[in-house]
Design a protein around this nucleic acid. Structure first.
Ligand SMILES: [Mn+2]
Ligand SMILES: [Mn+2]
Ligand SMILES: [Zn+2]
Ligand SMILES: [Zn+2]
Lengths: 149, 149
DNA sequence: CAAGGTATTGAAAAGCTTTCTCAACAAAGG
DNA sequence: CCTTTGTTGAGAAAGCTTTTCAATACCTTG
């Protein structure tokens, strides 16, 4: 009988405990805000949202916590743009890929089972353990393809 | 009757001219070295290789030229790691995806036609123009999966 | 082929993002 | 509670990438 996976908070707490780390206020505050953002975000946006809500969490703590959230599979690096990384929470969401318009920078999500299939087959053939996959299409969206390109 | 696409040098020169830019020594030297490297590379490696061959090209020029090579489709950003971007030349190579081991950092290439299929279908359905695609599998290679994970 | 207009270059500075340092603090076990 | 020790915040440091600006080189024109 499989135990239900639980909320992101339980998952994170278990992960932190299993690693022998301490479950701090700051770590939970950051986790909660990451799951309040239903969009791609960067460190600065996360930091400002927390400040605007009155939480005093430092950027250093955000930079320290994100790798933990990624390691336990709750969060993912989505893409690197404008000199910094962009993230999203993935727990509770279907795996999906991204289209990014090189002109207007709009990002669209879509999913296709073949992508996970490709990863699964690669893993089987080469004996690797898949932690995550990332599929991106870069190009010009329908609105932009006329204007330049 | 379709004209043959030509070498990377012709393509780059045509691109530069079409944009009304100047075809300089430095730009060609950088282009040539990019196509001498049959691996993923970063700015520093490219810079050091040029210096070791006696070329005096500045990093600024490399940082200025890479976006041009990318814009004309000769080069691609492969992945961001250790705080900087890694590139590869793609002209003359089949499209391929990457597996990256999170432990030993080894990078393996593989290809699967389904990936281009997914992109082609997305483009058709949403009317976007695809410039490039990127598929990555992150995980632990067969050698590393026992040791940690 | 010479000259002039102007994009490009190199070197250094600046701008950013991310990491590190260290004293003060707080989590967690006894 | 008390103690131990990992964590935090603020600022410094460390990179990477972009910008600045005078000197240079490309290339068009005459
Ligand atoms: Mn997404
Ligand atoms: Mn490759
Ligand atoms: Zn667009
Ligand atoms: Zn490995």
């Amino acid at each position: 009988m499989e135990r239900s996976p639980g909320s992101e908070i339980e998952i994170f707490r278990d992960f932190i405990k299993r690693k022998g780390l301490r479950y701090t206020q700051e770590r939970e505050i950051i986790l909660r805000e990451v799951f309040n953002i239903h969009d791609h975000f960067d460190v600065d946006e996360l930091y400002l949202r927390l400040r605007n809500k009155g939480y005093k969490v430092s950027k250093a703590s955000i930079y320290r916590t994100l790798p933990l959230l990624i390691e336990c599979g709750l969060v993912q690096e989505v893409y690197h743009e404008d000199g910094h990384m962009h993230y999203e929470h993935i727990y509770g969401h279907e795996p999906h890929a991204h289209f990014r318009c090189l002109s207007c920078r709009r990002v669209e999500e879509f999913s296709d089972d073949r992508l996970e299939e490709v990863a699964r087959e690669y893993a089987e053939r080469y004996g690797v353990e898949v932690k995550m996959t990332r599929f991106e299409i870069l190009g010009y969206c329908s609105a932009c393809r006329g204007r330049e390109g």
